Computed example of a mutant assay.
Amino acid sequence: MASSLKYSKEDEAKMFESITSYTEAVAEGKEATLDDETSRFAFANNVRGLTIWGYKTSEYIGEEVMAYLPVPGEYIACADTQELTGGKAWSL
């Protein structure tokens, strides 16, 4: 799985193009194939993305690690992130 995520940006771009064309062909009802290397990359990339999303949306991380405000307070348009949240990203 780790080796499926170790590609250069150019290789990743080619794989994403291949995945997009495959998805479009399937949506149009055409016969499409995807090589094994690209399908492994797509699977590993999706698992990684879902894992990060699950981590960021967990209760502990949302309340203890990220900046959390259960009831939104005042709106400060032009302030530094470091000043507002101590450099943390906002939790949803």
Rank of each mutant, 00 (worst) to 15 (best):
S4Q: 03
L5R: 00
Y7K: 06
Y7C: 05
Y7A: 03
S8H: 04
S8L: 08
S8T: 15
K9H: 06
K9C: 04
K9R: 10
D11H: 04
E12R: 15
A13S: 14
K14T: 04
M15R: 01
M15Y: 02
E17F: 04
S18M: 10
T20C: 09
S21R: 14
S21E: 14
Y22E: 00
Y22Q: 02
T23P: 01
A25Q: 10
A25E: 11
A25W: 05
E28C: 09
E28L: 15
G29T: 03
K30Y: 06
E31I: 06
T33G: 07
L34R: 01
D35S: 11
D35I: 05
D35V: 07
D35A: 07
D36C: 07
T38D: 03
S39T: 06
R40H: 07
R40I: 01
F43W: 08
F43D: 08
A44F: 00
A44G: 03
N45A: 09
N46R: 01
V47W: 00
G49F: 01
G49H: 02
G49R: 07
L50G: 00
T51V: 06
T51K: 06
I52W: 03
I52K: 04
W53P: 01
G54S: 11
Y55R: 05
K56F: 09
K56L: 15
K56G: 04
T57N: 13
T57F: 07
T57Q: 08
S58E: 09
S58F: 05
E59M: 05
I61Q: 05
I61L: 13
G62N: 06
E63Y: 04
E64D: 15
M66C: 13
A67P: 02
L69Y: 09
L69M: 13
P70E: 08
V71S: 07
P72C: 04
G73V: 03
G73D: 05
E74V: 07
E74A: 13
I76A: 13
A77L: 12
A77S: 13
A79D: 13
A79R: 11
D80A: 12
D80I: 11
T81M: 14
T81N: 15
T81H: 12
